[in-house]
Each structure stands twice: as C-alpha cells, then as structure tokens.
C-alpha cells in the first residue's frame, strides 16, 4: 500500500483456497465493527472500478478495518469449491474474528452483494450494520408515477415503445430481475427484526436501477414505519449509475459511506474527505 500507515493482510478462511484481504491501519489493533464487502454480482473483490479498494483504504485511515473477498465462483475463488455463498460469508466472518479479535461486522454490498448482505445480517447476530447499495425495493404507485414523468417528455413513438416494454415487464414476476429478495411482505418483518437487534442500515439507491426504483417515496412504501427508524439512513442518487462509472460518483460514495460509518459506529478518527481528481 502506498500509504505506509496502512496494511493489507491476506486472511484465508477455508481449507480449499478461499481468502480475503483485510485492510487496516498498520500500528493499531482493529477495533469496532469490521466492514465486510461482498462481490457486486460477478465483479471481483476489488469492486467496480476499484471502488472497494479505495473505500477500504479511506476507512483504514480513520481506523476502520475492511475485509473484501471473492465468493465461490467469482474472482480468485477456487473453481472446485463446494462451499455455498452463505457458508463462505460465515467462514469469512469467523476467520476475521479469529484474526482480529473483533466480533462485530457491517455487511456491505451493491446489487446482489446487497441481497446477500441482507440474508447474512438476518442470520448472524455478529452483524451490527448493513450497507445496502441498490438493494431491495418494491415497485409501487410512486414508481409508475415517476416512470410516466420520465417517459412522457420523450418523443411519442419512443414513449409508446417504453409503455409496451413496461406492460410486458409487469406480467413477469419480480424474480426476473435476477435478484434474491424476500417474499412479498417479509421485508418489513425482517427489517424490523434486524432494527430491534440494533442493526444500523445505510440504504443507498442510484438512478442505475430504474427498472425497479425511480422515486424516493418507494423506500417508505416498501418498509413502512421501519423506513423512518433512527437506525436507518436512506439516500437516493438519481444522477448516479449502478456501477459508479463516474469518478465523481465514486468519490461521493466513499465520502458518504465514511461519514455514515463514523456517525453510526463512532470510529476513532475523523474521516478525511476526498476530492475528485483532475
């Protein structure tokens, strides 16, 4: 690592070659919840456009340790492993706990990573926080209203084609997004159970998931009262795409996550703000 104050350690967590990288300050023992970053879909552990590496280094400067690893079937994970993704998450937490002595974690993920973080947080009481980027939301009235607003400023032919596409999509089950979401109605119960356990959540939605999220009011309609819980933080960035292609969006995300982490988990050092390069 170019900053000598920081260190990346290789932490193996399964006999068959699964491992991850723990980024932390080199001199201090790890304290507070460790942020565990899951693969966004099939993108390797370094994240889209190296986002996870940069986030880990930024947090490490503030004394927050981050662990990133490849789930089975992704990146460096050995091709012949029989470990399931959920087993891999549990094994990873066990290994980081053994390595650092810390027994609290924040699970973070984008897209499918967010879905897996949700499932893991439901099952594992060591998880005290969740970073949900483009996580779950129900399509509702607000969605269709925003959809119409977005499309009716288009030329008529294009708008009609979009209406046809929407009608077709309406006939398909939500599962066709390829996501692993709770059954209808379960999400509120599950979230309430996690909040009651003390889990803190940062839910960020981007404009890149316009297929199911277009209006911030969808968040409240998805989670009902839980959406207003003081442990919840919600943001909607409609001008940002799903994989943070723009450098300015990556900088904005790193700052937002760092600030949330600092306030939610009272990290030891103030988080430095980033500036967009060039």
């Amino acid at each position: 690592m170019s900053d000598p104050r920081l260190i990346d350690e290789i932490v193996p967590f399964a006999d068959n070659g699964l491992y991850g990288l723990l980024t932390r300050r080199s001199k201090d023992p790890v304290s507070g919840p460790v942020l565990v970053l899951l693969n966004p879909g099939v993108i390797p552990r370094s994240g889209p456009f190296r986002l996870h590496v940069r986030l880990a280094r930024r947090l490490a400067k503030a004394g927050i340790a981050t662990f990133r690893f490849d789930l089975p079937g992704i990146g460096d994970a050995t091709p012949d492993t029989t470990v399931t993704r959920m087993q891999a998450v549990t094994m990873a937490l066990d290994a980081v706990q053994r390595h650092t002595g810390v027994n609290t974690f924040v699970m973070g993920g984008l897209c499918l990573g967010a879905d897996l973080a949700w499932k893991a947080a439901l099952q594992d009481p060591r998880i005290v926080g969740m970073l949900q980027i483009d996580g779950f939301a129900r399509i509702d009235y607000w969605y269709y209203q925003a959809w119409a607003k977005d499309h009716f400023r288009w030329p008529p032919v294009r708008a009609l084609a979009a209406i046809a596409r929407l009608a077709i999509r309406r006939l398909r089950p939500v599962e066709e997004f390829g996501r692993e979401w709770p059954a209808r109605g379960e999400e509120r119960v599950q979230l309430r159970a996690m909040l009651d356990r003390g889990v803190k959540v940062f839910a960020l939605y981007t404009g890149g998931i316009a297929a199911y999220f277009r209006d911030p009011r969808q968040f409240a309609s998805t989670y009902a009262n839980a959406a207003d819980d003081p442990q919840m933080r919600f943001e909607f960035w409609p001008d940002c795409d799903h994989v943070f292609f723009a450098e300015s969006d990556r900088v904005r995300l790193i700052d937002a996550v760092s600030t949330w982490y600092e306030s939610a988990f009272h990290c030891s050092r103030p988080v430095e703000r980033l500036r967009v390069s060039a």
Binding site: P48, W154, R214, P238, D239, F245, S248, S277
Partner: peptide
C-alpha cells in the same frame, strides 16, 4: 449515462482524467 433517468452532465465531463471508468492521466 446522460440519458434519462441519468440526467447528469457535469460529472461525466470528459476532462475528468478518466477513461472507461479508470484513471488515465
């Protein structure tokens, strides 16, 4: 990314030193 619903312009400036999402000085 500048088409709706991605309604941004300033942050996708070509002068940001990036190429296909990577730094390219």
């Amino acid at each position: 990314r500048t088409n709706p619903p991605f309604c941004k312009a300033p942050s996708t400036s070509r002068d940001d030193g990036q190429l296909v999402g990577c730094a390219c000085p």
